[in-house]
Design a protein around this nucleic acid. Structure first.
Length: 274
DNA sequence: GCCATTTGACCACG
DNA sequence: CGTGGTCAAATGGC
């Protein structure tokens, strides 16, 4: 686990950068009251976030019990090591389901993070997140559950869209012409599972992303249209500092909860009022 | 030692 | 309060 204190400092740095950008935008505004109002709100959100973080000194970070009551619930995961399972539960939008006799390979790398016995289900449900959750803030998750015995039938439910760019096999991850260009799923192919990638000709890609790419962050090309996070959000141009994943999780959850996906590439800002 | 998986704990939601 | 989704320490394979 990353050092919470230093991560916190990075978050603060990012927020300060965001606030500066918001100020610049405000200064560039000329006359449109509606736009100015939105920018003011954005500015206020950055300021409030900084205030909240600055009111939680590192001593409290190291001693979660002290600050428990003062934390917003969605900050607990970030601030508080000891309290697991605290998160913003996703909504049911942007799901896709697929059933097949074997668990399908969709060309992305997944990491299992949980397994749960489901009521009235014979088999446990397996939870996977994208391997690039932390290095590229890819929010895609999937759930795989065996639903039938004979013939074996596995139901895979996808949540969110991949924003990562490290495909195991780009040939099978093409496009979804009905929706956003970052939706990169197609179900009519199969590949070996991630665990069997030693045999896969695309193994070189998996080596690039070892350690879940904690070190090998790949900056998305600004000319490409198949990522949905604005680069302003993700990287500090001046310091070239790396993002902190937990903060980006929250940012992204705001995206997923409050915005339509077709708006995502356009807006580097969020509405924290929701 | 590194990394992915396992599994119990935790907490949001209905 | 029960269920399900996620976290993170423990564990095991390489």
């Amino acid at each position: 686990m990353a050092n919470i204190g230093s991560s916190c400092m990075k978050v603060i740095e990012e927020l300060e950068t965001g606030r500066e950008y918001a100020k610049q935008l405000r200064d560039m505004m000329n006359g449109n009251d509606e736009e100015e109002e939105v920018v003011k709100k954005v500015l206020m959100s950055f300021t409030n976030s900084l205030l909240l973080l600055n009111n939680n000194p590192t001593s409290e970070i190291d001693n979660p019990a002290k600050s428990e009551d003062s934390q917003e619930s969605n900050c607990k995961t970030f601030i508080n090591k000891e309290r697991r399972g605290c998160y913003k539960r996703r909504r049911n939008s942007q799901t896709r389901e697929h059933e097949s006799e074997t668990p399908i390979e969709d060309g992305h790398q997944w990491r299992k993070y949980g397994q749960k016995v489901i009521l009235n289900s014979k088999y446990p449900r397996n939870y996977y997140r994208c391997t690039h959750k932390y290095d590229q803030n890819c929010q895609a998750t999937k759930q795989v559950q065996r639903v039938e015995d004979n013939p074996p039938l596995h139901k895979t439910t996808y949540y969110g869209n991949h924003t990562c760019r490290n495909l195991i096999n780009p040939d099978i991850i093409l496009d979804d012409s009905n929706s956003h260009p970052s939706v990169l799923l197609r179900f009519d192919n199969s590949l070996p599972t991630a665990a069997k990638l030693q045999d896969c000709p695309f193994i070189s890609l998996t080596k690039v992303v070892k350690k879940e790419c904690k070190e090998d962050i790949i900056v998305p090309s600004s000319s490409s249209n198949d990522y949905i996070l604005s680069p302003e959000l993700t990287f500090d141009n001046s310091s070239n500092s790396k993002i902190h994943s937990d903060y980006m999780d929250e940012m992204s959850s705001v995206f997923y909860d409050s915005a339509g996906f077709d708006q995502l590439p356009l807006s580097p800002f969020f509405n924290f009022d929701e």
